[in-house]
Each structure stands twice: as structure tokens, then as C-alpha cells.
């Protein structure tokens, strides 16, 4: 660490920037930073960006704790004979969440010319062969759901970008009340006339959709959503 006031170059200024905004530099080093900044527009800009980032991070919002949660959590923790049921993260969902559960899924497509057509329970989306195309699976949950299981089974020659060669993909995730979007970037590498099976499961409730994927030789992929099967 360099002691005493000295003339910094831009590299030294950048090297010390983190410590400077964190207030970790000596008085002499801080003065050297200020002296350099005063005569260097690029470093002024860099400092401004760093300070803006730090300020935005400091004020990142967080939800307030649910009223009564602290008392409830302590009460449960001090009753060792009680079964404590964790609702999320690994396995097991609250049984109250399962009763009367109604889940459904709709599919919309992120297409530049908005070609998605919805006809009753059938949706058709025209996509291009060999090109990545993202469809959004929109899961509408009637209430917050913890630990819902989303599964995909892909037909041959269709893959989800980022999951090369995987025909079956499963996620455990939480769903917020209302709409939850699962962006699904797909790519078909050959002609396909088969189904992509998507299902969502929470507790004892499961809903499965069969999505017909047709890939034409004319460089277009057609997605057809058939009515859901309740399992």
C-alpha cells in the first residue's frame, strides 16, 4: 500500500476505486484519488458509476416481514413436541396448499410479428426451423405455491437451449399467486411430428399438457397446444 500524497494514473485510480468508495483508503490516498479525479473525465465517470451502483445496492428493497410471523415462528420453535413442516426447498408441500388446487397453463409466444393464435384450447405458433425460438409457458397459480414441480418431456430433435441432449427436464420451484413465466428457448434440428409434454405438479394435484410440435421442411415449426389432460 502506497503511503503519502502522489500522482495517480488511471490504472491506479481504478485499482483503488473499490477501497475508495468503501472508505478504506488512508487520508493521503483519498486525496490522491480526488486530485486525479478532478483532472480526468473518464475516471470521474467511473467513480460516478461506482457510486450510483453502491447507492442502488444499499437501497435494494425487501418485503416487510409478515405481521405476527416472529411470534408464530418462536412459538413453534419452543414447542418441540410439534411437528415442524418445512414447506419448501427440498420436499413436501403444505397439505393445505393441495386441497382444491387448480392450476392451468397457457402458452404465448415471443414472436416479432405476434403470430400466436388462440382458438379455444388450441394454440398454434409458427416458428422457424433451426432457429432458436422462445415460447413462454405461463403458469397461473390461484395462490402462492411452494415446491411445485415442473416437468418437460421433449420429442426427438427438439431441445431446450442450455440443456443439450436432454429429453426430460424437471425443476422444483415456487410459484407466486398469479402469472409465473417460464421462458422456454426451443430449437428443432430436424423434421418433427411429435408431442412435447409439459406438466405441473403440486402435492397430489397434477396437470399435463401435450404440445404438438410439427416441423415442416419449409423452414417453419408449428406448435399446437391440445386441450389439457387432468391426471
Amino acid at each position: 500500500m502506497v503511503e503519502g500524497l502522489y500522482f495517480m494514473n488511471c490504472k491506479q485510480f481504478h485499482d483503488h476505486l473499490d477501497d475508495y468508495v468503501d472508505g478504506m483508503l488512508s487520508q493521503e490516498q483519498s486525496q490522491s484519488m480526488q486530485q486525479h479525479e478532478a483532472g480526468c473525465l473518464d475516471c470521474q465517470h467511473a467513480l460516478g458509476q461506482q457510486q450510483a451502483l453502491m447507492q442502488a445496492l444499499k437501497s435494494m428493497p425487501a418485503p416487510k416481514m409478515r405481521p405476527g410471523f416472529a411470534q408464530q415462528a418462536i412459538k413453534r420453535a419452543t414447542e418441540p413436541q410439534q411437528q415442524h413442516h418445512r414447506r419448501g426447498f427440498v420436499t413436501g408441500f403444505g397439505s393445505a396448499l393441495v386441497a382444491g388446487l387448480a392450476l392451468w397453463m397457457v402458452v404465448t409466444a415471443m414472436l416479432p410479428n405476434n403470430e400466436a393464435v388462440m382458438q379455444e384450447d388450441v394454440m398454434q405458433v409458427m416458428l422457424s426451423l433451426h432457429q432458436e425460438s422462445t415460447i413462454n409457458l405461463a403458469f397461473n397459480a390461484p395462490k402462492d405455491l411452494v415446491g411445485a414441480k415442473i416437468s418437460l418431456i421433449l420429442p426427438a430433435n427438439v431441445e431446450v437451449i442450455g440443456f443439450p441432449g436432454q429429453r426430460e427436464i424437471t425443476w422444483i420451484t415456487d410459484l407466486n399467486k398469479g402469472q409465473n413465466i417460464l421462458p422456454l428457448p426451443l430449437k428443432a434440428s430436424a423434421a418433427v411430428d411429435d408431442f412435447l409434454v409439459a406438466s405441473i405438479e403440486s402435492g397430489q394435484s397434477k396437470k399435463t399438457f401435450r404440445i404438438q410440435i410439427e416441423v415442416t421442411n419449409q423452414g417453419r415449426t408449428e406448435l399446437v397446444i391440445t386441450p389439457a389432460n387432468m391426471v
Binding site: R76, G88, F89
Partner: peptide, 12 residues
């Protein structure tokens, strides 16, 4: 939800 679960688990 996970925050509540984490805190509850920790307190237990």
C-alpha cells in the same frame, strides 16, 4: 416463503 421457512428452521 423460503425466507420464512429458513428462519423457522433456524429457530427450531
Amino acid at each position: 416463503h423460503d425466507a420464512e421457512d429458513l428462519v423457522q428452521e433456524l429457530l427450531v
